[in-house]
Design a protein around this nucleic acid. Structure first.
Lengths: 236, 236
DNA sequence: CCTCCCGGCTTCGTATACGATTTTCGCCGC
DNA sequence: GCGGCGAAAATCGTATACGAAGCCGGGAGG
């Protein structure tokens, strides 16, 4: 009876400031908070009904993850990765995810493949509904699920962080938003998973990431920097 | 004239709480703060002459980096990676560092190779002086320098974090402390750098990391927890 | 008409104070 | 002698308050 709320499912405590961090992160990942949007501590605190201390902790966490930029005495804002960082994020993913996909494929069960297909279907649905933000978010979740399916928690953590940053990169540098052609790549990946073909999954993942990187227009960096104030007011 | 103290060298501000974080990190990396050592907020604050707020920020930063464990209402302590995490950290390094070494070798100049040789010499000196902590720290710095020499800041950041965690792993699971045989591997790596032989550097780095992982005794996990109490009491 | 300076306002950085939770140690009963 | 139990102490979590630094406007001078 002592300590009935032991570590049951990796989330025994509701997480005090983590909730705010994940809420903000989700907002960023769904492209509701565009890169460069200012995140006032008071504003966020009021929005979530929490004091500034916890908001600061959440912001620091996101800053360390690379999702927000924290400048001394100048406030926090959603990170705006420059083209170099954008390229580096995808190069890092190209270094990590193929091998991880390989591991995941070797450990994949039929139920897991079905679950992944359901994810893709949901992603497709969001895309058809015109909800690009949710589609991008679910697409990222797909990659994160692969990383977590492999036995590598440490690498999975890094991939989650990189995928989150990729969402920012996509918001800034993606060429054509209406044609999220990745769906085919994801389907092919799940096929490889279902067949437990590690080598093929690895190759597919690498090609997929290269495609994503080549789908960016990193020269457009100078063109995007305003219109943040409006979107901030409409948060939530 | 306006803003003469612009971003000059990536460190225009002395960093308020970051100083404490790096000081603590260095203490951990040099094995002066053993895994499991408790880090009281009041204690650290008194030690560095700072309030608890800034100490908390530093601790949160280190916790996110994986160097300290932060449990709710139970204080902070130096992280004690379990064997699984220990293995994963080195596997992640084996995934990242070889390719990074390849890039570094292609960008290496003769001056840089000389600098790296100086690092090895310093490491050797510390080892001969019996200062194992400093030797391990410098060994880690060697790997970090390679990562930073490559053009990949994002990957370099991840490697820095992994190397720091590796120091904890070494403190816990290293078999024979007196024979730090890695010096040969480091020398061979610098030779490859001087020759700008990327493929060889990549191969050497991979072998080096595999050697490091094989030099761990991950079965000892059960044998270690009895001595925590002593080190806890003797923390400083 | 443009430029420069200066005042106020907003926002962040840090310290302090109070409440909640955990730990620990002494005590009682078995 | 030993295990359970309760209160005190210590520690952490959060909120609030004060000080400082940056940003923006108006006004005067060239």
């Amino acid at each position: 009876m002592l300590g009935s709320r032991q570590i049951t499912a990796a989330a025994p405590e509701p997480a005090p400031s983590e909730e705010i961090a994940v809420a903000l992160a989700r907002g960023i990942l769904e492209h509701r908070l565009p890169p460069g949007a200012r995140l006032s501590e008071d504003e966020v605190g009021e929005l979530f009904g929490a004091g500034r201390t916890v908001v600061r902790a959440a912001l620091a966490r996101l800053a360390h993850q690379g999702l927000v930029t924290l400048r001394r005495n100048r406030g926090a804002s959603v990170a705006r990765p420059d083209p170099r960082e954008a390229r580096e994020v995808f190069e890092a993913r190209a270094l990590l995810e193929p091998r991880t996909a390989h591991f995941a494929a070797r450990r994949a069960g039929p139920g897991w493949a079905a679950e992944m297909r359901a994810r893709i279907a949901e992603e497709d649905r969001a895309m058809r509904a015109g909800d690009v933000g949710t589609a991008v978010y679910l697409s990222g979740q797909f990659h994160c699920a692969i990383a977590e399916a492999a036995d590598q928690r440490t690498i999975a953590e890094m991939i989650v962080s990189l995928v989150a940053r990729s969402s920012l990169v996509i918001a800034l540098y993606w060429r054509r938003r209406d044609t999220l052609c990745e769906c085919h790549a994801h389907h092919a990946l799940v096929d490889a998973f279902a067949a437990r073909d590690g080598a093929r999954a690895e190759e597919l993942m690498h090609g997929h990431l290269v495609d994503l990187l080549s789908g960016l227009d990193l020269r457009e960096r100078e063109a995007a920097p305003r219109s943040l104030r409006d979107l901030l007011g409409g948060g939530t």
